[in-house]
Design a protein around this nucleic acid. Structure first.
Length: 893
RNA sequence: GGGCUCUUAGCUCAGUUGGUUCAGAGCACCUGCCUUACAAGCAGGGGGUCGUUGGUUCGAAUCCAACAGGGCCCACCA
């Protein structure tokens, strides 16, 4: 049973009874309750004897502003954390932001540009001063916005991925991994973002289909009049060509083996090589080789000992190898060079061609493959425990489960991670160079340690700090984010501290699937590598918020509503409900403001239920029988719904959980229970019923609280004055045993009768005022104790039984019993007969089908007994129904 | 090219191990109501051969195959 702390004197009125507006005004109360929760420190958590329930926020970009994706994501987290808090767990939701090196640096660069300052004009330290200034100015904005949404984060624990201790953790981890031999430096083809002027990891490259051209370029053959035609999508790269490749078995070009081709424009002579890599079918069957600008070409170049000519600057303009194109952008050059080739008669033709072009996830710039020296993290050994945890032991679970397959696919084909970025905003790589040789460097947590190591490694005691040069690059942002669930509790630097021992592993992670590889997979790897334990148990992957046309919501499309304006207009609770209602885990959410309106309507419904209840005069009078029954039924229904809701939560079906509450409150509580117990106009309600209604109302508020925290707290506090420790946010989730469940179908039976009577009233245009008699034949078939309820809600004068059909009555059937509404005046007998005939026909057909099934030996022999028994019951029910139908048909005739 | 996934009412989606409770929910829609909590509401109502075609089975929205059409992820074909 529910334990409620409520005491009522017989005439006690609700707290704040006067002047309750008929519309719920969310905007007026939300800020006030948020402040109340903050002032009373309900969000804060410290380790204690309770079970911990922990969520770490996916840290938004420090310079970000709240968008619909954040709204969805953080509403989900808040629902989970509030539920856990009500369940009596020590709930801790750690907020924070991410330094997002590329995005933030880009913004700082842009801002400096506005002031007329170029990044290249200032020192690294000066730049970082500007960056911190920016961070301090805008860094908290998004977290402040989360407060509007009602997020109950432990703000005292707010972290930033570049906080001192966070950065120290990153550096320590780098050093550890380096010492284990998992981090290495390599000269590799990497993804170059010319806009941000940095390398990117493979995951940061988004391939997009683009409509381009395939250029057919003729290369004269040295010493002959012949030309060799090569197809390419990137004519500007011919200036970096160092070979032409043909297939060894290609007879078309067999005579050219060993000859040399002349690169147009640059007039360099390059070898014609043979390799089976060439696809005979594609283009002209031969390939230009540009080892500096293509991964495959690089491989060919290494195999065939080719020269490498890099023709680009860092910003993807051409360098000196670009000859007269030097300084021009690659796309400008593409256009111009094709014109020049045409003028030279060396452009045979162009044809439209669709290919996939890699673009930068952050800047959208087209990625340039580029050879450079970078730092990499070996992934295969890190991946193994993370694969086992998800796919074998089930220590880490995905909701929905289908993402486990995506995860598996990626993890099993994982490639080394390029972790260095040519940026300044981020954790600087702790490698220190002391000499000119490629191995003349050491890796250490700080300069002092580095100096010691360097002295040892170089066997030169005279090295000083001045001889050391720290690597210029910073680490990929995700190299700090992957530690998030550990580092927010300082678990790297202080592995035995109380917080990390208490809160780690965390419970649930809520995030979007687009950062599954960037972040989620890597956190799992980090969890096992640095703590030997999973970082979280359950991963709830949200969908993408789209508009009604299924387009992803984005700034550029302008189809994303302003999150704060939505809250302003509908209230945070309503927006939360709107988001939750149609967002099953993993399903994209087609956002429509109508959903917020639905949320608002619901808020108002609850509000008005409260208005009704608070307006009742309570007196010490006997309880109505109908009220007693209604309450019994509702308790049973509440228990059932609660069990459904708990089940939905266990399966992370949060929208289903909300829908269950929604229907419980709106349909069961408001439409049925309140109508049953509602006293007649200006009549008082009895004390017992009133007390019970308040208890049940409070239980409803509690269940609804995770979804609509403001509204529920507002009503909760209006019901009566509460002490600090009695706030709804820290109350207890109801626990009810599943008693009296048989009342549910009984009551449903009664509501069916009521609906049928209402239907007849409607069809016959009978006002509620006009009291009717309800008669039925078979007393045994109706549990008569519901009579009072039926009578009240169907506005009936009396309920009684008759031996046979009465004349001048309308009939209806519920299950196999027949009911009559006695009517004065004439009846449309013909229509009645028609209706009954129709139903009779249908039932007979139905019976036939069932009997056929039962006559089938194979069915009777093979189907489980239970199923056969059910069919038999169906048959007998149908038979009984036919009997009553025939009887009434007789009497009508 | 490889992998995953989806197709159920006008819209968004539930339908767990094939079997009364299986053809559902919410919204939208239609009809009637300004009934003294709520028109942001009340009451009543209509609506789907479960993408197509085969197969397995006593029995298929559910299992299998093929096809049609969406979506997602991965991949170096110029």
């Amino acid at each position: 049973m529910i334990i409620f702390l409520i005491s009522l004197s017989s005439k006690q009125k609700l707290y704040h009874k006067m002047s309750i507006p008929s519309k719920y005004e969310a905007q007026k109360v939300e800020n006030q309750w948020y402040k109340y929760w903050m002032d009373n420190e309900y969000f804060y958590s410290t380790p204690d004897a309770r079970e911990s329930y922990t969520i770490v926020i996916p840290p938004p970009n420090v310079t970000g502003v709240l968008h619909m994706g954040h709204m969805l994501n953080n509403t989900l987290q808040d629902v989970l954390i509030r539920k856990a808090r009500l369940m009596g767990k020590n709930a801790c939701w750690v907020p924070g932001t991410d330094h997002a090196s590329i995005a933030t640096e880009a913004k700082v660069v842009a801002r400096l540009k506005e002031r007329g300052i170029a990044k290249s004009d200032i020192s690294r330290d000066e730049f970082l001063d500007y960056a911190w200034e920016w961070k301090n100015e805008y860094g908290g904005v998004i977290l402040e916005q989360l407060k509007k949404l009602g997020c109950s984060c432990d703000w005292k624990r707010t972290k930033f991925t570049m906080d001192e201790d966070m950065s120290a953790s990153v550096i320590r981890v780098f050093v550890e991994l380096y010492n284990k031999g998992l981090i290495y430096r390599g000269y590799r083809m990497v993804n170059w973002d010319p806009e941000a002027r940095t390398t990117l990891s493979d995951e940061e490259v988004i391939y997009e289909e683009q409509q381009g051209l395939l250029y057919y370029i003729a290369y004269p053959i040295d010493g002959t009049d012949e030309r060799l035609v090569v197809a390419t999508t990137r004519p500007e790269t011919i200036l970096g060509d160092t070979a032409i490749c043909i297939h060894p078995q290609d007879e078309r070009y067999a005579h050219l083996k060993g000859k040399k081709a002349i690169v147009p424009i640059s007039n360099r002579s390059i070898p014609i090589i043979e390799d089976e890599y060439v696809d005979l079918e594609f283009g002209t069957g031969c390939l230009k080789v540009t080892p500096a600008h293509d991964e495959n070409d690089k491989a060919l170049g290494e195999k065939h000992n080719l020269e490498t000519i890099d023709i680009f600057n860092a910003d993807a303009t051409l360098n000196a190898h670009g000859l007269h194109y030097e300084g021009k952008d690659r796309f400008v050059v593409r256009d111009e060079i094709s014109k020049e080739l045409k003028g030279l008669g060396l452009l045979e033709k162009t044809e439209p061609y669709t290919n996939k072009v890699g673009t930068s996830e952050r800047t959208k710039a087209v990625i340039e493959p580029r050879l450079s020296e970078q730092w990499f993290l070996k992934m295969d050994t890190l991946a193994q425990p993370a694969i086992d945890a998800v796919l074998h032991t089930g220590e880490v679970k995905f909701f929905p489960k289908k993402f486990e397959k995506t995860y598996r696919h990626w993890m099993e084909n994982i490639r080394d991670w390029n972790i260095s970025r040519q940026l300044w905003w981020g954790q600087r790589i702790p490698a220190y160079y002391y000499g000119k040789g490629s191995q003349d460097y050491v890796v250490a947590e700080d300069a002092d340690q580095a100096l010691n190591l360097a002295r040892k490694k170089s066997e030169n005691d005279k090295l000083t700090a001045k001889n050391l040069r720290q690597d210029k690059d910073v680490l990929d942002t995700w190299f700090s984010s992957w530690l998030w669930p550990i580092s927010v509790f300082d678990g790297i630097m202080e592995p035995e501290n109380e917080d990390i021992k208490y809160y780690y592993p965390t419970s649930d992670l809520v995030t979007a699937p687009d950062i599954l590889f960037f972040w989620v997979a890597r956190m799992i790897m980090a969890g096992y590598e640095f703590k030997g334990q999973r970082p979280f148990e359950n991963i709830y992957l949200t969908g993408i918020v789209r508009d009604k046309q299924r387009r992803k919501m984005s700034k550029s499309l302008g189809n994303s509503p302003d999150a704060l304006e939505l809250i302003e207009h509908y209230g945070a609770d309503s927006v939360r409900v709107g988001l939750m209602l149609s967002s099953a885990a993993g399903n994209d959410l087609l956002f429509d403001e109508a959903l917020c309106q639905q949320g608002k309507n619901f808020a108002n419904k609850v509000w008005n239920a409260f208005r009704l209840v608070q307006g009742w005069e309570v007196e010490d009078i006997p309880q109505a029988e109908s009220a007693c029954l209604g309450l019994e039924w509702y308790r049973a229904k509440l228990a059932k719904t609660l069990s459904d809701i708990n089940d939905h939560f266990d399966k992370y079906r949060l929208s289903d959980a909300l829908m269950s509450v929604y229907k419980l409150v709106w349909d069961d509580f408001c439409s049925w229970l309140l109508e049953i117990v509602k006293p007649a106009y200006q009549q008082p309600i009895d004390k017992t019923t009133y007390k019970a209604i308040i208890e049940l109302f409070e239980a409803n508020l509690c269940i609804l609280h995770p979804f609509m925290p403001f509204l529920t707290e507002e009503i909760w506090q209006r019901i009566r004055k509460r002490n600090k420790d009695e706030a709804l946010i820290v109350s207890s989730w109801p626990t009810l045993s599943l008693n009296n469940q048989e009342l549910i179908p009984e009551f449903e039976f009664a509501t069916t009768v009521i609906s049928a009577v209402r239907n007849i009233r409607k069809k016959k245009n009978l006002a509620n005022k006009e009291a009717l008699d309800l008669l039925f034949i078979d007393k045994e078939k109706l549990d008569q104790r519901w009579d009072v309820v039926i009578k009240k809600l169907a506005y009936l004068k009396s309920i009684g039984s008759v031996a046979a059909a009465v004349e001048g009555a309308v009939t209806f059937r519920v299950k196999s019993n027949e009911y009559y509404i006695a009517l004065e005046g004439k009846l449309d007998t013909e229509a009645e007969i028609e209706k009954i005939k129709e139903e009779l026909e249908y039932t007979q057909g139905f019976l036939k089908a069932v009997e056929k099934k039962l006559a089938n030996e194979r069915f009777v022999n093979n189907a489980p007994e239970k199923v056969v028994a059910m069919e038999k019951k169906k048959a007998s029910d149908a038979l009984a129904k036919i009997e009553t139908l025939e009887k009434s048909l007789e009497s009508l005739k």
